[in-house]
Design a protein around this nucleic acid. Sequence first.
DNA 1: CCTCGCTGAGTAAACGATTACTCATCCTGC
DNA 2: GCAGGATGAGTAATCGTTTACTCAGCGAGG
Lengths: 340, 340
Amino acid sequence: MKPDSVSIREISKITGVSVATVSRVINNNGRFSKETEARVKKALKEYNYTPNLAARGLRTKRIATVGVVVPDITNEYFARITLHLQERLFAHSYSTIICNTDEKADIERRHLDMLLSQQVSGVMYVSGTPHAFDRLSHLPAVFIDREPQTAREAGNYSLIESDNFLGGALAARELLQKGCRRLCVFKYRDDISTHNAREAGFRQAAREAGLQAGDVRVEIVPDVSVLQGYEKAKAVWQAGGFDGLFCTADALAVGACNALRAEGVEIPGQVKLVGYDDTAIAHYGAVPLTSVHQSTEEIGRLAADTLLQIIDGNQPERRHITLPVHLVVRASTGGQSEEA
Amino acid sequence: MKPDSVSIREISKITGVSVATVSRVINNNGRFSKETEARVKKALKEYNYTPNLAARGLRTKRIATVGVVVPDITNEYFARITLHLQERLFAHSYSTIICNTDEKADIERRHLDMLLSQQVSGVMYVSGTPHAFDRLSHLPAVFIDREPQTAREAGNYSLIESDNFLGGALAARELLQKGCRRLCVFKYRDDISTHNAREAGFRQAAREAGLQAGDVRVEIVPDVSVLQGYEKAKAVWQAGGFDGLFCTADALAVGACNALRAEGVEIPGQVKLVGYDDTAIAHYGAVPLTSVHQSTEEIGRLAADTLLQIIDGNQPERRHITLPVHLVVRASTGGQSEEA
DNA sequence: CCTCGCTGAGTAAACGATTACTCATCCTGC
DNA sequence: GCAGGATGAGTAATCGTTTACTCAGCGAGG
């Protein structure tokens, strides 16, 4: 019913000032008298003016929109980060285009082409391996969780991650302190810095506690899914077993838990279990799961602020931010207390 | 490194044809010879031409982007729908701007203003009560799950939902068939068509089985959260109890399950429990949860196709689509079999 | 031989907003 | 009384595409 949207020109006609002045008032840019300002603002409100972002973007070559590239939005951890990113960016009047890549290079490529076409002012990579990073080497970018392996020379980006090494170490210490000696790690892939760091931290803590390298068995899984955890746990248990298991993602731990119980193994009696990310499933699973917690809110907030800094042309305060993590102890390691 | 992006004009200079012809080739629109086409296409590829969507949007007043308004992206059910929406829209070369409203009217309003500024060609409402629907009464829109209560006269929209009435009825029949007679329903709010329909279906099935209206107790909860389910279950149990509980969302059921077990109640021995949405937590919770399953994939696919039809100016085949649901029976009602 | 219709392609005007120039007016200080 | 700076505001070019007109050339029908 209402007019689709009035343009700056119509406001100009209505108020009797030129379009240039209207634009100046809108952007609070340049000089104009108090009266002019009042008159224009009144008209803007009254006629419900909505700026045409296409026109503005065309002229200024920048648009208050950033792309968010995420491997799987149905993963609760990623969803939470995405949510906080959006909240923060929205508060700075940026909008976000969320792209789900499913970890597929060709999908990511198409998404990036689209983002470039949209003239987005920056890109946020949530835990993604950027296969197509070269396409946007000149664009402001922030990586969350995973470091880009390629195109590292292009300078215009930052990395925000939580302390994965520490997270792995906390997991190991918890298991060791609770008496575990035959340790096992289920790690997601072998080429992701995030998960490698978790393993490294775990190993180091085990070494410090006097274990030999051979006392820690590491299994690689190709997917983060409950099913993968289930299958792998069944296989490893039947092939010799362990008394402490650390999974670099909660879903794996949940699957492992199910498999072990199906084998008649008691948790935490015979096997103790630690997951990662502290997702809802960890709270409410069959056996409440001890898990490494990282603050998605803080990650999102910092990442958004950093990207905005880069977009504004300021060097970010820090190029590489590492956030602390802590362990939430639950029944799967037989504990009540929560340790920082 | 690479040139930011070549424009149509540069392609025109390179190939020696006019910009108009280049545009025609790009859009496969109008007449041009085979040779011209080949020459232009070669140049486009070679110089890595990327269309400027701002310019195109400015000229054509429409842009291949739709807004997706969702109350809470961290809710697995919404996230799955959003994912499938995006996949489908992306396949038709539309991009999506995902907006999280947190069910807050003012946030929704700001999001909608932004979407209008972006000149999006349509809006998808995922299970949201459109508080600000009037802002976009002229825009193509598809509602998923919840029917708009206001501005209903504006004709340009469709509604996709699953059969909530049937879902409620299936839940009731399952509980009744397993011997429950003192039934209780935890319903999310009292003003949401979706959840009201679930309750209505539940009541009707109970009536058909010979129960009196008084045999079904209904409790309203203000939030879909595990905590709410926990508190409400504790209170209701201590105030008299029930032997069959239906929650209109899985999270509530998980909370209720925890509370009841904390009270020493056996599930499914003393109380049987049915949830809704069949989310991961239903599979892997402490007691695997019987739940009503709706296909997020189908909902997403249909919604996307319908919105595209409306955008293209065709009346959608059906203005109101209702999808079937089925019950997945698990331990919380003591069952193994899966019923359609 | 003239005219008509078709084909392929160029010219130029939008779309809505921003901004570099320009300019009239007024004030201030000498 | 006048130079010169400050102030407020208008003119017009521009961003990259699309598209309504226009037109030259060519083949066919009368």
